[in-house]
Design a protein around this nucleic acid. Sequence first.
DNA 1: GGCCAGGTGTAAA
DNA 2: TTTACACATGGC
Length: 227
Amino acid sequence: MNLTQLYKKLLEHYKPQGWWPINGAYSRKLNLTEEEKFEICIGAILTQNTNWSNVEQSLKSLRDNNSLSFDVINDLKEKDLAPLITSAGFFNQKAKTIKTFTNFLRNYKNISEMFNDKEIRNQLLSLKGFGKETVDSMLLYAGQLPYFVIDSYTRRVLARFGLCDEDIEYTDLQEFIVKNIPKEVYIYQEFHALIVALAKDVCVKYPDCESCILNKNCKYGKSILKL
DNA sequence: GGCCAGGTGTAAA
DNA sequence: TTTACACATGGC
């Protein structure tokens, strides 16, 4: 069982996931508009340590208040932005991070130009509130650039399949994955989403799985994929 | 009521 | 370098 085999099994079983959700719908788009890229970036910040349904509520709140755009958020005060995103949790912190993002965006003509910056990953990582997962999510799903996203699910799932240690460093796991699957944006996007799909599926189907998604003794994931 | 969710920054050992 | 903790809402 190597990474490519796991990817193919997941794709066969769960079908393409079409991340990132745009306007609440899961659909893969090849040509994203500036507005859609912006929404994905905001979603990447909002989803920090929070489940997606809470993020969707905040995105809806922003949309309902006609505030899901660079121009509006750029003019909003942090204290006026926070109430619009409460349901995502950590709203004060995230309001600050979102304002940091729009301030940073002023350095560019638009988001597409920002993603053309060869140093964009390091630039974003230098901003407060922007860790590796948030930045790579923006680069992969909004920028459509080949940066593999590592999250807690990725570590846990790959560890259960014996492909890495549970406590592996972000950079080390990213390097391992990138070395072992084709360097294609589509595959990076799908593989990451499929890993999350497996974790959630197992958790829902087998709630007796010690309440921990793919806990150490979980054999359900492997049985679902007939491995 | 308790646990967890597609993390990050900071401080102290 | 590792560990602990603050940040906070919503679903089950």
